[in-house]
């Protein structure tokens, strides 16, 4: 029957549409459905956050352990205040660890890399990393290089 075939085609069309949606969600955006992990927050202040954005990844030894929650301006210290969510199973970051703003590749995104310290005391929710290394800003690098070249002559 003609109308049966039409119904079949329409059904297939809708299924294909939904499959495309799931494909895009899972394969392209890498959305995991059980993504809501428990996290705790720590903060860090930078002299220059240089292009770091919300939801940038936070890594230890190159492994993703959290993401940037918010970036605000600390009015009193004139510094960038970065709040990040760290997965709660990574609960052994020493208080004297340092954090740096890194770039993936030459043109890649900015992300945070935590280098582990030596203290026995660990960071808790609301803790702060004091040892920070700001983003490398290309202009600053070039001018430093030029001044140094000038000095050595």
């Amino acid at each position: 029957m003609r109308s049966k075939r039409i119904e079949l085609a329409v059904g297939a069309f809708i299924v294909v549409g939904i499959m495309a949606f799931v494909y895009l969600a899972v394969q392209v955006s890498g959305l995991a459905f059980s993504d809501k992990k428990d996290t705790y927050q720590i903060v860090a202040r930078f002299d220059d956050i240089g292009g770091l954005s919300n939801r940038a990844k936070v890594t230890i030894a190159g492994v993703n352990v959290g993401s940037v929650e918010s970036i605000t301006f600390d009015k009193d210290l004139y510094m960038g205040l970065v709040t990040m969510n760290i997965d709660s199973d990574v609960d052994n970051i020493p208080t004297d660890s340092s954090v740096a703003i890194l770039t993936s590749g030459l043109l890649g995104e900015k992300y945070l890399g935590i280098s582990i310290g030596a203290e026995d005391e660990m960071l808790k929710d609301g803790g702060e990393i004091f040892d920070t290394q700001s983003a490398l800003v290309l202009e600053t690098l070039i001018s430093q290089f030029l001044f140094k070249a000038g000095d050595s002559e």
Partner: peptide, 11 residues
């Protein structure tokens, strides 16, 4: 739906 299918086939 067509737009989702378009993006998926494009990728």
């Amino acid at each position: 739906l067509l737009s989702l299918i378009f993006s998926a086939t494009g990728i």
